[in-house]
């Protein structure tokens, strides 16, 4: 498996587990920890954890909302405002989670570089 696949899978699974105990920033924690152990290079440092969490949040949000006919998502998509489209809200959710994880991934990588150079 490539480093990217390993990082992606590890971030995804770690976030899945941490989410049970931690608030929303569990996804940032997952990305930092993974970055410390599974090193990536270049832009992948950001986009691999981004994609992992994007996928996790999109999938889970979709599962929950789909089971309830998107009743609340349609309303929240008016509130935010996203034109009342629940799918847009799901994508925005994924993006927010992904963004937080991606940036945390960069930080994790920088931490690792700092420690290693000591």
């Amino acid at each position: 498996m490539s480093q990217k696949t390993i990082n992606f899978t590890a971030t995804f699974i770690l976030a899945l587990i941490l989410s049970i105990f931690l608030p929303w920033w569990s996804v940032m924690t997952a990305a930092i920890i993974t970055a410390l152990f599974v090193e990536l290079k270049g832009f992948a440092v950001f986009y691999i954890p981004f994609l992992a969490i994007f996928l996790l949040w999109v999938l889970y949000a979709f599962m929950l909302s789909n089971a309830n006919d998107f009743t609340l998502a349609k309303k929240i998509a008016v509130l935010l405002p996203l034109g009342g489209n629940p799918y847009t809200l799901i994508l925005v959710t994924g993006f927010i989670g992904g963004l937080a994880a991606g940036i945390a991934g960069i930080f994790g990588k920088e931490c690792k570089l700092l420690f290693r150079s000591r």
Binding site: W24, Y60, A61, A73
Partner: peptide, 8 residues
């Protein structure tokens, strides 16, 4: 928006 504890 966190699907684990947020509005979802």
């Amino acid at each position: 928006l966190n699907p684990y504890t947020g509005i979802w």
